[in-house]
Simulated assay, not measured.
Amino acid sequence: MTSMTVQYAIIWYLTEQIKSATMLSFATLLGMLPMVVLSPFVGPYVDRLNKKGLLIVPDLIAALFAIILSVTGVVTGTFPFWLIYVSLFVRAVTQTFQTPTILSILPTIAPREELTKVNGQLGMVQSANKIIAPGIGAFLFALMPLHLLLLLDVLGAFLGLVLLLFVKIPKTATHSGNTLALEDTKQGIRDLRSKKGLWITVLIGAVSSIFIMPAASMYPLMTIGYFEGTVSNAGFVQIIYSIGMLVGGTIIGVFGNWKDRMKPLILAYLVIGITLVASGLLPANNTGLIWFIIFSAFTGTDAPFFDTLLMAMIQQTFPIDQLGRIMGVVMALLSLLASAGLIFAGPIADRIGVEKLFIIAGWGIILCAIINWLIAPAKNYDKQLQEKGVMERYN
């Protein structure tokens, strides 16, 4: 929660200072690059190294850079953009280690048949944090100087470290260390490609991220720039979006044992695409802003479905001691194309308008949904996976 509060505060600071889609997308791009560059190599080490350490050390590093940025603000009276970008980059590096670690820990704790629900419940917790963080961030951003707000990250890292000291994580099979991490990564790609339907679903998801991530990064600019709202309005939009994510995570967490998870996944694509197109067609006035908030709730509700359901399928497809390298490959693919979209999204939005970028993104996502439905191996993969799992448990 504290990390998200600080993250929103930094983004709103940039939005207020520069009001440029190009610079905002560049800031988001810096947050994606570590996923692209490091994920294929991080994944194998998640399988090899102490998972508790992989959760604690990145938090401490992020807290250190928060302190550096805060002290710079006190000493110089300003926050250099280059240092903000470096801080965002470092925070993204820490997340590159933490995300696959958490996803690889879940199957060691949760029963196989409950993984969809457990991933949904994890999404609920994350969404609850996202509901609280924008509100706190907007309130504190108006109440106190940014250099003090940044220190929340330090508090959060300390509390997280203390809590993790009491957590026992089950050990999995250890690697001999004779195989290079790069070879593990190549094997991860081969393993993923061997599951044709899953591989196609991941590739379509990667293509959809070209459209989803640029639109997601432009929410503050859409609120403040297009609708001429305030930071408080931007915070409220983020809160509504996150409430939607909480609702979506709750639906998955409670009703997640679907016999065919591909249907709700594709439906979520369609809803996100339609709401983004509708958002881009709204008038730039208060009425438009109200409808934008409503559409954001629906977009948020469907946002958790792809990641949550895809990760559950992956966790049920591969052995636990291979999940790190598989997750690393998947995250790298998704982040690579998302980064490509961000490179072009900023200049395009500055040239044609951020609202038109929403329209383009929406139609792109709708097209991805249609393609996913038309390709039989992808459409039928989860149904076959679960039928196989039932047979294995029966035998």
Rank of each mutant, 00 (worst) to 15 (best):
residue 380 N to T: 14
residue 72 T to E: 11
residue 222 M to N: 12
residue 280 G to F: 00
residue 195 K to W: 04
residue 3 S to W: 01
residue 323 L to P: 00
residue 27 A to T: 12
residue 29 L to P: 09
residue 391 M to L: 15
residue 247 V to R: 00
residue 252 I to E: 08
residue 131 I to H: 00
residue 130 K to M: 11
residue 318 F to T: 00
residue 237 V to T: 13
residue 7 Q to K: 11
residue 334 L to F: 13
residue 178 N to Y: 06
residue 32 M to Y: 10
residue 151 L to D: 07
residue 72 T to A: 07
residue 196 K to M: 13
residue 393 R to D: 15
residue 137 G to K: 04
residue 368 C to I: 04
residue 274 I to E: 15
residue 31 G to Y: 02
residue 193 R to I: 05
residue 88 L to I: 12
residue 348 I to K: 06
residue 333 L to V: 06
residue 226 Y to R: 05
residue 291 W to V: 11
residue 60 L to C: 10
residue 4 M to V: 09
residue 234 A to S: 15
residue 361 A to Q: 11
residue 359 I to Q: 11
residue 256 G to I: 00
residue 333 L to M: 15
residue 359 I to Y: 02
residue 149 L to G: 01
residue 30 L to M: 12
residue 46 V to W: 10
residue 139 F to G: 02
residue 85 Y to K: 06
residue 151 L to C: 07
residue 255 F to N: 05
residue 321 D to I: 00
residue 283 P to K: 07
residue 206 A to L: 10
residue 376 A to P: 07
residue 55 L to C: 04
residue 45 Y to D: 04
residue 209 S to L: 14
residue 300 G to Q: 00
residue 76 T to K: 14
residue 192 L to S: 02
residue 156 G to A: 01
residue 203 L to I: 08
residue 154 V to I: 13
residue 174 T to F: 06
residue 324 G to Y: 00
residue 212 I to H: 11
residue 127 S to L: 00
residue 78 T to A: 06
residue 238 Q to W: 03
residue 327 M to V: 02
residue 159 L to H: 05
residue 371 I to Y: 11
residue 237 V to M: 14
residue 381 Y to G: 04
residue 271 V to L: 04
residue 356 K to W: 12
residue 112 R to M: 02
residue 339 S to E: 11
residue 233 N to D: 15
residue 244 G to K: 00
residue 23 M to N: 08
residue 55 L to F: 03
residue 208 S to P: 07
